[in-house]
Design a binder for these strands. Sequence first.
DNA 1: AGGTTCTGGTGCATTTTATCACAAACAAGC
DNA 2: GCTTGTTTGTGATAAAATGCACCAGAACCT
Lengths: 215, 215
Amino acid sequence: MKATTTVSKRNSKEIPDIVIGRLPVYLRTLRLLADEGRDVTSSQELGGHLGISSAQIRKDLSHFGEFGKQGTGYNIAFLCNQLQKILNVDRVWPIVLVGAGSLGNAIANYAGFESRGFRIVAIFDEDKKKIGLEMGPVFVDDFANLKERVEETGAQISVIAVPTHVAQRVADQLIQAGLTSILCYAPITLTVPPHVRVEYIDPVIHFQHMTYYLG
Amino acid sequence: MKATTTVSKRNSKEIPDIVIGRLPVYLRTLRLLADEGRDVTSSQELGGHLGISSAQIRKDLSHFGEFGKQGTGYNIAFLCNQLQKILNVDRVWPIVLVGAGSLGNAIANYAGFESRGFRIVAIFDEDKKKIGLEMGPVFVDDFANLKERVEETGAQISVIAVPTHVAQRVADQLIQAGLTSILCYAPITLTVPPHVRVEYIDPVIHFQHMTYYLG
DNA sequence: AGGTTCTGGTGCATTTTATCACAAACAAGC
DNA sequence: GCTTGTTTGTGATAAAATGCACCAGAACCT
């Protein structure tokens, strides 16, 4: 296994975003294999699990270095480590959550973030009845205190779990407060400046994708 | 506006899945515009909202028919209607949900499904303490009754909102019961037969995608 | 030691996806 | 009715993503 001293883009050629998007899936799967006590795997096995070709996995990884060994495959622990460094999840990122409804509550109570690099450090709501409630690891805070908390915690990532009609306004304020990454659960496409990255989770989009094929 | 008598694949050439995946986003956005009282829009306006090119929108739609009018654009209500037919959401699909934890509770209590073509018709759990609880529109049922309820309701779509370590087993039983579409919230790639479609929601995948760029 | 079987990395071919750019259709003003 | 300004639908083109096929390195068996 050739030592790749630094984990970085192999060349400084830009790596396709679609490749980056698959790395977390590889990482998740590798850690599951590790949990099963496995030590090594191959691009073929991994591809089989994920329903993608082994060539794609090899090519994706080759953007960042040479992590495998011919004839053997990949050392799972080592590859996990490398992927974590590539994705910058070899640390824990603070996240602020807006919306203390049932969805916010579910997110706040989810125990699986920490081991994968994330921690909810604040939850905000505008409803006075919600403020002060204990939810998951923290207490619900007044959304008016957003900026203050962002500065304290150094958070860059946020989650929007509020009703659709206030989502854009919330997004504007998150950006105003300095957040640069937003995961939006509201079923709306947000308008944001170019330096802000938004990703979306909307189950109905998935359902509608499915029903196309259900005829 | 040329009458497209049937809403169907223009040609019987297969339409790319990636195109299908964008249609629900178009539909969502169009309905938001309709809610704002707008009557017509253009591929350019729509593309501006969504951050994609107008050409892509036109080409995507052109797979299914001619829905616009030169010089004017698209009639929003009409296009919504057509997209709903294309996606088969001009009806309401029954959905069964497995997992009555806080995530299951959030999903069950979400009021936004019905207007977009879906209704939770059953919630299952194995925990005796959960069974019988009222959750959203229904009462939590014993997972052992799955097959029976699926037959009663005619459901084809299911949602997995259970802990990772039971997700595969739950998926197996859903498939066993005849479900063919699964939306999986557990952070695991399921192994399923070819006739079953699975989509995934895992916020951590999105977070890790973001942190790559946060360096 | 030598042959056999794996498996990763990679250049090249293929397929898929996105963009360009333009004719035709329509609206509106004059 | 003619001209001007839009906007669609689409063939052609460009770009991106995927898959193929093979070489070299490594393990393992005899």
